[in-house]
Structures are given as structure tokens and as C-alpha cells.
Amino acid sequence: MAALRLVLNIIWLVIAGFWLAVGYTIAGLICCVLIITIPFGIASFRMAGYALWPFGREVVHRREAGAASTLGNVIWIIVAGWWLTIEHIATACALAVTIIGIPMAWASLKMIPLALAPFGNEVVPSGAPREPWRI
């Protein structure tokens, strides 16, 4: 199973992952220019890492995330979240044209929750034991 994840991650990296990660990184650098938008930059860097190597990782909601995360997500959705969601849907449609692209399309679709609402979510290894409050 680990070998399959490695192969899928390498194919993903070549087909879509590198360019998605570059885009998220550039957005993170732009957000870090202003002091007030640094949390958005950090979220962009986290999404860049996930976009670079998605297989074998998943997004989980942190229950301890509070009102600040909700407010950050509302602002994020208005400014960037819905654009990123459209981008991931379009990428998934393009990737699903071939049989080998179907797992890649699924990876693009599973990035939507994090692209739509990055605050209060965390990227963890698939199947990793988690604390009871993170299930």
C-alpha cells in the first residue's frame, strides 16, 4: 500500500501537485507581506504542503478550534476559498478523463474542505492514531 501511495504521489507531483503547491506558496508569501494577513499565509503554506503530497494524508477537523477560526474561514471563503474550490473541481474534471487520472481527481476533490475552510482543520497521516477529541 505504501508503494502505491508513493507512485500516486509522484504522478500527482508531476501532473498537478507542483503547480498547485507553487500557487499556494506564492499566495502565502503575498499574505505574509502584511502583518494582519500572516495567519492566511500560514494556512496557504499548510495547503501547499498538502497539495504537494496528498496521498496517505487526510484532513481532520480540530474540535478545539474556536470563534477566531470561524471568522477566519468566513473571510477566507469570501476572498479565496470559493476560487480555490472552483479550481480544484476544474482540475478534478480534467484529471478524471483518463483511468489513471481518476485517483488524481479524487485527490483534488478531497482538498476542497481544506481549500474552502483552512482554519480549524489539520492535515494528518491517514490511519494515524488520533487523540479522542480529534476523531
Score class of each variant (00 low, 15 high):
N73M: 06
N73K: 07
N73S: 02
V74L: 04
W76K: 03
W76M: 00
I77N: 04
I77E: 02
I78Q: 04
I78W: 03
I78D: 03
V79M: 05
V79W: 08
A80P: 07
A80I: 06
A80M: 06
G81T: 07
G81C: 05
W82P: 08
W82A: 04
W83S: 10
W83E: 04
L84N: 10
L84V: 01
T85H: 06
T85P: 09
I86G: 07
I86N: 02
E87P: 08
E87I: 13
H88V: 05
H88E: 11
H88D: 04
H88W: 03
I89N: 06
A90F: 13
A92E: 09
A92L: 04
C93P: 05
C93N: 02
L95V: 11
L95I: 09
A96R: 07
V97P: 03
T98G: 06
T98C: 10
I99E: 10
I99A: 12
I100N: 12
I100S: 11
I100D: 13
I100A: 15
G101V: 12
P103W: 07
P103R: 10
M104P: 01
M104T: 02
M104V: 07
M104E: 08
M104K: 02
M104S: 08
A105D: 09
A105V: 02
W106I: 15
W106S: 15
S108F: 07
S108E: 11
S108W: 05
S108V: 07
L109M: 10
L109P: 00
K110G: 02
K110E: 06
K110N: 11
K110M: 11
M111R: 02
M111S: 06
M111E: 00
P113E: 01
L114E: 09
L114Q: 05
L114A: 07
A115V: 05
A115I: 04
A115L: 01
A115R: 01
L116I: 01
A117E: 03
P118V: 05
P118E: 01
P118L: 08
F119M: 06
F119K: 03
G120E: 03
G120M: 05
N121S: 12
N121R: 12
E122R: 11
E122F: 00
E122V: 10
V123C: 13
V124M: 12
V124I: 15
V124N: 12
V124C: 13
V124A: 10
P125W: 14
P125Q: 15
P125L: 15
P125S: 15
S126K: 15
S126E: 15
S126Q: 14
S126M: 13
S126V: 14
